[in-house]
């Protein structure tokens, strides 16, 4: 009975339900995070002064506030101005914006690191501004941004557990319920921890594989 606790059907179904919610939080949030990150990152490099300043302010606030504070603002704060979000929607919004702010830092750094000689060479060949960015700058910047952005996604997997704090019952939340109902805190959180460990390890492995795929001899990752 003791060893088989985690094999009981209702426990298993609660855990899978929680895991599924977590996955539904992580995947859209990381996608939106990357989209926001690339957009804001690019605007902070190529935009005019006003746009750059706006981008910097966005990043300052969304990296400066703890994620928990941001989640509370979206979930408990927004109703005061008449916007009601479900715990799930508030979580995805919070994760995407915060993650996007961090991502944009890596993207920005990556764009800035592409040497001016590269764009000059492209211009000399007759590339237009857009084509230069598309075919020369982006492929190089992408490789440079990848390790940082990949790390950010791993962070996001872990931080997705904070959705529990605004009552979005994902993996951690289901774990808390199972543990409290059965008074099995240690085992339950060990299992929950192991599942997260699996998720983060798989993500790290995929990212490393991708980096290996995109490896170019002599192309410095950091300059």
């Amino acid at each position: 009975m003791n060893e088989l606790f985690f094999l009981q059907p209702d426990i298993i179904s609660a855990l899978t339900r929680g895991l599924w919610v977590s996955v539904q939080l992580i995947i859209p949030s990381s996608l939106f995070g990357v989209i926001i990150g690339v957009t804001v990152g690019a605007l902070r490099v190529y935009g005019n002064t006003a746009i750059r300043a706006a981008g910097d302010a966005f990043v300052l606030v969304f990296r400066g506030f703890p994620l928990v504070v941001q989640l509370f603002i979206w979930y408990f704060g927004l109703p005061h101005i008449g916007i009601y979000l479900t715990p799930f929607a508030a979580s995805v919004l919070g994760f995407s914006l915060c993650s996007g702010a961090y991502q944009s830092e890596y993207v920005r750094g990556a764009f800035l690191s592409v040497k001016t000689g590269q764009t000059m060479a492209a211009r000399a060949l007759g590339f237009s501004g857009i084509k230069t960015i598309l075919f020369v700058t982006l492929p190089q910047a992408f490789r440079r941004a990848l390790p940082g952005c990949g790390n950010e996604i791993i962070y996001l997997i872990k931080y997705s557990s904070l959705a529990y704090m605004i009552t979005c019952i994902e993996l951690t939340g289901e774990g808390k319920i199972i543990a409290s109902d059965n008074f099995r805190f240690t085992e339950t959180f060990m299992v929950i921890g192991a599942i997260y460990l699996l998720l983060t390890s798989v993500a790290a492995w995929v990212i490393r594989r991708l980096e290996g795929r995109l490896y170019i001899p002599g192309f410095e990752q950091y300059s």
Binding site: Y159, S160, L162, Y164, T172, Y196
Partner: peptide
């Protein structure tokens, strides 16, 4: 690899 919240619990 394990979230802070899970470790706190």
């Amino acid at each position: 690899g394990v979230p802070l919240l899970v470790l706190l619990f």
